[in-house]
Amino acid sequence: MPGGRLTQQERQCIATGLADGLSYAEIARRLGRPTSTISREVARNGGPGDYRPQQAHQATVQRARRGTPAPPRAAGVPDGAVEAEIIETAVRSGLPRMTARVHVDLLLSEDGRRTAAELTRRLKVSPASVSVAVNFLVEQGYVRRERDPQRRRDIYVVDDEAWYHSIAISSRQTLEAARAAMAAAETLGLDTPVGQRLARGGTFLERVIQDMMESADRWRGLLT
């Protein structure tokens, strides 16, 4: 595994990987570098939506010549590498990268509130991309939408209750699938191999989801 500073060629490979939608872990594997090296590199140089290999290399060379570290972050502002790692975790869990970026930006904002214009400006992406991501997050209960009547705009909010609502929505969707499987089992016949398989799977999912919602209801008070 190579050590030391990233080369200009490696930075170009990072940019190519980001453009191709690769995860930091995959880019790191291809370069033989730790994932944390890639996430820090991207976070320090514009983030995944604005990473430029040539500028990143020049900035690193200039810092080395001056013998000074990168500018310190303000108190209370999450480190860029930490933010990048959270995004990667969300992507690995199944969220599209843009949706994960929007969600994490909201999560790490001081008051958990952003307008569409703020998200567009901060993430350096199109309003359409933000709209698609936010709509998904609202549908899944991760974010709620508030209306600003004075300025006629939507404000997107992440609060503590969002964790509960996201679990509730996901549970309802899984429960629907479980009950559909059990209904199909009855139609096909509970004495057939396929019917038995669907019945067992549906019953398993139903019981697990019921337990999950009981647990969510029991511990909901921790969020308030």
Rank of each mutant, 00 (worst) to 15 (best):
P2I: 01
G3Y: 07
R5W: 07
L6M: 10
Q9T: 11
E10F: 04
Q12W: 14
C13E: 14
C13Y: 12
I14E: 02
A15I: 04
A15Y: 01
A15M: 02
D20I: 05
D20R: 12
D20G: 06
G21H: 00
L22R: 10
A25R: 13
A25G: 08
A25V: 06
E26V: 09
A28K: 02
R33N: 00
R33V: 06
P34M: 05
T35I: 09
S36I: 11
T37D: 09
I38F: 04
I38E: 00
V42E: 03
G47C: 05
D50C: 13
P53L: 02
P53A: 03
Q54F: 12
A56R: 00
T60I: 09
Q62F: 15
R63N: 03
R66C: 12
G67E: 05
P72T: 08
A74L: 14
G76P: 02
V77W: 06
P78K: 05
P78F: 03
D79V: 06
A81N: 09
V82C: 12
A84T: 00
A84E: 13
T89C: 14
R92T: 10
L95W: 01
A100I: 02
L107V: 15
L107I: 12
L108D: 03
E110T: 14
E110L: 15
D111K: 14
D111H: 15
T115C: 05
A116V: 09
A117P: 05
L119V: 05
L119A: 01
T120K: 07
V125E: 00
V125H: 03
S126H: 08
A128S: 14
S129E: 12
S131D: 14
V132N: 07
N135I: 11
Q140S: 12
Y142H: 14
R144C: 09
R144E: 11
D148Y: 03
D148V: 04
R152T: 13
R153S: 07
D154T: 11
Y156F: 10
V157E: 01
V158D: 00
V158L: 00
V158E: 01
D159R: 07
H165M: 13
S166H: 08
I167V: 15
I169N: 07
I169V: 14
S171G: 09
S171P: 01
T174H: 12
T174Y: 11
A178V: 02
M182V: 06
A184V: 04
A185K: 00
E186P: 00
P193V: 00
V194I: 13
G201A: 13
V208C: 04
E214D: 15
E214L: 11
S215R: 14
A216E: 05
R220S: 08
R220G: 07
L223E: 05
L223Y: 07
L223N: 03
